[in-house]
Design a protein around this nucleic acid. Structure first.
Lengths: 230, 230
DNA sequence: AGGCACTCGTGCACACGTTCACAAAGCCCG
DNA sequence: CGGGCTTTGTGAACGTGTGCACGAGTGCCT
């Protein structure tokens, strides 16, 4: 399959940086800055200026040489490219610790991702209210997805229940999933999945800490017998 | 000369996959599987088999041709490489929604990252107990870090307070930071920082949803014409 | 108007990451 | 004990991402 659409494709690495630029641009706009150079934006984002220019060039030539980028216009273009011209309601599966925190975290709605619903299998949790949203039973998932036109689902269940949650989300018609459970979800290819795994992040930090310590503190006693790769 | 140099430099992409392999291997071990091929592990991890072999080859030659990898031995080697031979206590800054969820999430301690402490600037929150850990005032941060030998800090504050939180963590002696706040932290180069930004993840999904709609102009999300998957 | 200072957009080279393909190495069986 | 089957480990090709360097516009100043 060659998904080479007529529409220009933006590199993944760039797509993952656009939201960062967008937030910074929004802040600058709020501070009254109406023009910004790639160098300044790069400084704020902690990246290379050439990278910023190349990233933005995928959207089109919206800068002015000798001047920079008009902040508000750039905000508009980035938002358009990211599909943020309208809200994307999300549904959260799992009303445990994490689900509650996500529902209670106001930043979701503010950033264009209102919580259309939160569901759980546990009848004891159904009916309680989290962040202004009533927890519903997972059987109501298809109805929520359809009536609220939800295309993004959030898996906030324990690992053991995550695959089932994903299956139900897909069956209900969701096409993108944000997965917080520490498992690899298996879904149809057409479904876009992104994973956030706290344990993985911590273990990566652990690796660097261990390296920092000299990487040689383990010292198998008497062990000159390093693996002899011939 | 020590060929350790050779062993020491593991590509970032590989480091970020090792925790995934580790979890899968642990599960297999629990299920009584004592030998596994790169192909099977690749299937579980959702990646290419050659990639698995290359990743594991950075640890050394721990496989047996014609047979596969001995699960328990591989678990040991991966844990050693990731520095997971001992616990890494973490300290959480910010006892808001997210901080509470993190403290309450048992998976932290189970996976070798016990919560050594959770702190907040808000006196109203100090003293309350989250996940068995009492919230302390942020001024006690240096003491917690030193007495508990903490080297990893978690920033779970609102964006506006995150830089201050990071500065205090660094001042207290922390050398790695996991940042949940939606800002780019500025810290000394020697500090390892990893970022988890929910808004960014959702916006990336938004991009793909918007693209999926054929780059259509003003389609309602989850609109009537659902693309038929084969 | 012309020159100058500035900054974008991008070609190019290099680094990094992924995948293929295959020889080497081990096991099993007759 | 040798041949066949399996699976690893890795060289090489390919693709993606990064950063430099510089041409090409743009605005300002004289």
């Amino acid at each position: 399959m060659a998904p080479d659409r007529n529409r220009r494709r933006i590199p993944d690495a760039t797509v993952s940086r656009l939201p960062v630029y967008l937030r910074l641009l929004g802040e600058q706009s709020a501070e009254g800055v109406d023009n910004i150079s790639s160098e300044r934006l790069a400084e704020l984002a902690g990246v290379n200026a050439a990278k910023v220019r190349k990233d933005l060039s995928y959207l089109g030539s919206y800068g002015t040489r000798g001047v920079g980028y008009e902040v508000d216009y750039l905000v508009y273009q980035v938002r358009r490219e990211l599909g943020l011209t309208h809200d994307w309601p999300v549904v959260i599966v799992g009303a445990g610790n994490l689900g509650q925190a996500l529902a209670g975290y106001g930043g979701f709605g503010e950033r264009g991702f209102p919580v259309a619903g939160i569901v759980d299998v546990d009848d004891a949790k159904v009916g309680t209210v989290l962040g202004g949203v009533r927890v519903r039973h997972i059987d109501e998932l298809p109805q929520i997805v359809q009536t609220k036109r939800v295309s993004i689902g959030v898996v906030a269940t324990p690992g053991a229940a995550a695959q089932e949650a994903a299956d139900r989300l897909v069956a209900a018609g969701v096409t993108s999933i944000l997965n917080f459970a520490p498992i690899v979800l298996s879904v149809p290819r057409s479904i876009e999945v992104r994973k956030v795994d706290l344990a993985v992040e911590l273990q990566i930090l652990s690796y660097h800490e261990q390296r920092r310590a000299g990487g040689a503190i383990h010292a198998v006693p008497g062990g000159a017998s390093r693996s002899a790769t011939a």
